[in-house]
Design a protein around this nucleic acid. Sequence first.
DNA 1: CTGAAAGTACGACGATCATCGTACCAAACT
DNA 2: AGTTTGGTACGATGATCGTCGTACTTTCAG
Lengths: 106, 106
Amino acid sequence: MVPVMARALHHPATDTLELTGVLHALSDPVRLEIVRGLAAEGGCERRCNAFALPVTKSTRTHHFRVLRESGVIEQRAEGTAVVNRLRRKELDSRFPGLLDSVLSAR
Amino acid sequence: MVPVMARALHHPATDTLELTGVLHALSDPVRLEIVRGLAAEGGCERRCNAFALPVTKSTRTHHFRVLRESGVIEQRAEGTAVVNRLRRKELDSRFPGLLDSVLSAR
DNA sequence: CTGAAAGTACGACGATCATCGTACCAAACT
DNA sequence: AGTTTGGTACGATGATCGTCGTACTTTCAG
């Protein structure tokens, strides 16, 4: 039996990712911080809760949704929590070099 | 004597370019088309007029300004026209690989 | 069973954005 | 001097965005 909260999470296919959508998703400081956190230590997974962000729960949910719907992250339900993974391989395949250049930027 | 229209064009210094600003500038289809046009044939310069864009003159001016103020392009007055140049070298220096990955994306 | 934990859903708010039309301006051409 | 050319300035408008609070749901621990 699939958990209820895991059903409705839509993830775009790799070959349908739009460049403008990804760029827009990455153009917000809060979301960029999330992506950097997920990229640390090489493709680790982290719960939505495990980020120190200067926004409330609702805003947090909003940003994670933008990242998921643009194809930057994958979300998976695990109990009451949601585990996030950076779709590094898919992004590298669709937009080679983009993620690396963004992550290495200071 | 410097032409009047060339005075007020502000260009941010290379080391002050902000990643989120550049990403936001590149996240619009019209502006992305402008950047692609400027990147064609290796660093050519083109007038604002020399782009086939689905927007009016005012909107055109707006997009060119966003690109300039984020540091993506340089604008220079030449008679009544404005000549645009992609700040490729500066972008490559500040955000290595970013522009190339965006331009090679389809 | 009760309650806490972790998110989501929904609506609201102000801010920013992309777009446009009109008016304006400076340079070039006649 | 007048006109055309190429663009800017200045609102205005409707859409999207980032933020929040409140209410709700699901899961897990006691």
